[in-house]
Amino acid sequence: MQLRIRALETILTEKGYVEPAALDAIVETYETKIGPRNGAKVVAKAWTDPAFKKALLDDASRAIGTLGHVSRVGDHLIAVENTPQRHNMVVCTLCSCYPWEMLGLPPVWYKAAPYRSRAVKDPRGVLADFGVTLPQDTEIRVWDSTAETRFLVLPMRPAGTGGWSEDKLAELVTRDSMIGTGLPKNPAELKS
């Protein structure tokens, strides 16, 4: 595989389609600059600022655009809110659509057959694989990302975090809690 890819890169470079330094920069961007901390900042802000939360649920792309400290976000982002009555989970059954700018590149499991096949049929079983159990009467809503709209789950703020700063709250926000396959950490986990 390594040799075939090197060959393709050589051909494309010799033809003047791409410069290797640009490829390096793309890789570096996804390895170091874009990741789930972006999404965590947005969630923490929504937990502390009701006006921002309303704007986020209304039009996530526009609301995030107003935050200077989070990387810019493309169009068509939709934030969906978890409540005691409803849990949201995001999948792409057709390929691997994922809110890259908020969460970085998706993990292998998100792109692999077990998750893509089961999330829309047996989400409670999938959640069990993640060690998550929800009350039997909680509605589960699965969002299949079949177009260029992207989804970010806004998890519920953990109890016992009254008065916390946005930065500290952001530490509770896990990648999986923004996909809907996990829950935020609780305050005790943070101390350990």
Binding site: M1, L12, I26, V27, Y30, E31, F130
Partner: peptide, 26 residues
């Protein structure tokens, strides 16, 4: 089952990163 890798790296091999970048560029 869904198999979750703890502390998963962005890419597992260097060539994966090159493929991602080449595809984005094209």
């Amino acid at each position: 089952k869904v198999e979750v890798e703890q502390n998963e790296p962005t890419f597992h091999e260097d060539w994966e990163a090159r493929v991602m970048a080449i595809t984005r560029v094209m």
